[in-house]
């Protein structure tokens, strides 16, 4: 019975790993494909392009390569976290200010789907001691997912408050959500909700399944 359970868990982890590799490969390849597409055009003498287009393609290629670099650095960070070789710099941080900055940073992405992000804090400042980069990454990733998996015209409500000795940051969205049984596995490695693969909301008129 125990062996059987272990094998099932092993298979599940392998499946999650495979999905993770697939998604990461796609994400890494996308900027490369776009950049090669632009460079091919720039190097092709048959293509008649204007100076403005040339400059635009070079700028966009640079942006795509920078995003690729960020992704590679993120993957290296995952590796460092797993190997426990991360060096943390613990400093005082005002969480309210940090969340406000992140909300502002997310507005551009949210606007693409007409998503409203609302932020309210019970107090003006919530000072904690932590590694700024790590906390920033956690908040950015949570908020980014709340926007990415939200519906068009949706909403993200961010609240900051206290509960006893704890500071509580809540990020609530109007997106596809998680199944109750998936919530326990939320923080396991490679986890990605099955809802992501099942279109809980599809584009108008596209009842694909």
């Amino acid at each position: 019975m125990i062996v059987s359970k272990n094998i099932t868990q092993f298979k599940e982890i392998e499946q999650l790993k495979s999905q993770f590799v697939s998604m990461v490969s796609h994400e890494l390849k996308a900027p490369v494909a776009a950049t090669i597409g632009f460079l091919d055009i720039l190097l092709n003498p048959k293509m008649k392009i204007t100076d403005e287009q040339r400059s635009d393609f070079l700028t966009r290629s640079t942006l795509r390569l920078r995003s690729l670099l960020t992704m590679v650095n993120d993957l290296l960070d995952i590796s460092r976290i797993e190997l426990n070789t991360v060096k943390r710099e613990i400093v005082k941080i005002d969480l309210a200010a940090l969340v406000q900055e992140t909300v502002e940073m997310m507005q551009f992405e949210a606007a693409k789907k007409n998503i409203t992000i609302k932020f309210s804090a019970e107090e003006n400042s919530f000072v904690i001691e932590a590694d700024r980069l790590e906390i920033e990454r956690v908040i950015t990733n949570l908020m980014s997912n709340a926007v990415k998996y939200n519906k068009t015209d949706g909403e993200v409500a961010v609240t900051l408050g206290r509960k006893g000795a704890y500071i509580v940051l809540k990020i609530k969205d109007t997106g596809i959500g998680l199944k109750p049984e998936e919530k326990n596995r939320l923080f396991s490695v490679f986890f990605r909700a099955k809802n992501v693969f099942i279109k809980a909301f599809t584009a108008p008129g596209l009842d694909c399944r």
Binding site: A30, A34, G37, F38, I41, M47, I49, F57, R60, R64
Partner: peptide
């Protein structure tokens, strides 16, 4: 869904 791929492909 990638605007850069759309633009490069369109131009070609």
């Amino acid at each position: 869904d990638d605007p850069d791929i759309i633009d490069a492909t369109s131009l070609v």
